[in-house]
Amino acid sequence: MAGVTELIHKYLRHDKKFPHVWCPGCGIGIMLGALIRAIDQCGFAKDEIVLVAGIGCTGRLPVYVDFNTLHTTHGRALTFATGVKLANPKLKVIVVMGDGDAVAIGGNHFIHAARRNIDLTAIILNNSVYGMTGGQFSPTTPYGMRTTTTMFSNVEQAFKISELAVTAGAVFVARGSVYHAKMLDGLLEKAFMKNGFSVVEVVSHCHTQYGRLNRMGTAVEMMQWQKEHAITVEKAAGMADEELADKFKIGVLIDRELPVFQDEYDKVKARAKGISIP
């Protein structure tokens, strides 16, 4: 345990005015721990990592870690990351977003980054709610749940972020949860090492806003819920749809090879140099 703490401290910005903004019991800290362990495991240097985030609770993450960090406008993290990556392809660009950030305001950028297959890793922390603004429903709030803007229950259907990413063309898509922290380390490592647009959805909880309104208990109880409702991809393969109705799949959902934007654009550059344009 001491070793893990020491490792994390190596990557934290000690000149930043701690404490952080997150509530006690929040899952974002667990995700940040997994992110740091995975980066360390992959052996990236601090200087080559660019950590990009949007707005919201999850968007506050980069300020605490000692990388090149970029805290962008709401929903636009992937667009800034696209620019960073294309201007300097040697950098390892990791984008951290919340569910509202990634698939509501930034939904269009998300599907297009996946379609374009640009070499980025998008980590989406899905806590089913807009936490920082006080608990309004997000595109991933399940049908029938209470939030501060759906006090008479949510009448909209929820997005399945990972499945959306698969359909949009991401080459690596995985889902984990903050309860399965060890597994999350592994998923993030695989995502970082993948060439192309990789997505890791992290199922988390917001006991302060979402949990309280829906009487789901403390952070521990909500993590217990994650434990009970998570089914590994391998296990889910042999199960009927009815059995999976209230479950979510964790593990690697897809790992495939498709042409990556930068590699293709290098060919464009070669063609452009060969052909003389008047």
Binding site: V50, V52, L70, T72, T73, R76, L78, T79, F80, A81, T82, G83, V84, K85, L86, A87, N88, L91, N108, H109, H112
Partner: peptide
Amino acid sequence: IASMGAVIGASLAG
């Protein structure tokens, strides 16, 4: 919106 975001990102990367 995305164009402007990418332009800022690219400028930050040099």
